[in-house]
């Protein structure tokens, strides 16, 4: 059953929604901002429905629009420095709201590593953070990132390399890996 009042729109969008939501989350790093970005994309897409029905690969097109919305937002308002957050999320780091975050049965050590990773990621530039998350976490290919961000593949590769190196430097320094290593 169609949930929106436009079944064509839903038919085009629905298969891509999970991947787009994940992209929004990886770009912004916070639930409220990810939902804003995701919603704005859908609204823009609805306004371009006549074009959208004729696009062969709507997923790529939608991803590109979302990325551009994200960049526009960053440029206009430097929004990450000032955001609306739900109560209880004021000190949140993006992992706090995950199911099982407070589950004592969860692998506490692994969770701590993720928290350190989140802190390390926050120290990267937006470009480096986005590239490393899309490639190493979401499994985007270099060529997909090249299309999404409109930068040469060689630049994607070099930024990925530098982002990993910087993460390694931060995480080695705070002992994230040494604690796990075989001593």
């Amino acid at each position: 059953m169609s949930t929106s009042n436009h079944p064509t729109f839903e038919k085009i969008l629905r298969p891509h929604m999970d991947r787009l939501y994940r992209l929004a989350w990886r770009l912004t790093g916070r639930k409220a901002e990810a939902e804003d970005l995701f919603q704005e994309l859908l609204i823009r897409a609805y306004g371009k429905l006549d074009d959208l029905v004729n696009i062969d690969a709507p997923g790529s097109w939608l991803s590109r629009v979302m990325y551009n919305l994200f960049i526009d937002e960053q440029r206009r308002f430097a929004r990450r420095r000032m955001h609306t957050v739900e109560e209880g999320e004021l000190s949140g780091d993006g992992l706090a709201g995950l199911p099982g975050a407070d589950d004592p049965a969860r692998d506490h050590e692994q969770w701590q590593r993720f928290e350190r990773l989140a802190a390390a990621l926050s120290q990267l530039s937006d470009d480096h953070r986005v590239i490393v998350l899309l490639h190493d976490t979401e499994g985007y290919k270099l060529d997909e990132i090249h299309v999404l961000m409109d930068i040469p593949v060689g630049t994607v590769k070099s930024r990925l390399h530098r982002a990993r190196a910087r993460l390694r430097e931060i995480l080695d320094k705070d002992g994230t890996f040494f604690e796990q290593g075989a001593c």
């Binding site: 949930t3 729109f9 999970d18 990886r26 609805y46 995950l98 989140a118």
Partner: peptide, 24 residues
């Protein structure tokens, strides 16, 4: 570590609401 880096999944109800809001 990055490969396993988690994020909350959106549920189907959220996507339904987002579609409705988008059309409105």
């Amino acid at each position: 570590l990055l490969k396993d880096y988690p994020m909350p999944a959106a549920n189907a109800a959220y996507f339904d609401q987002a579609l409705v809001r988008a059309t409105h």
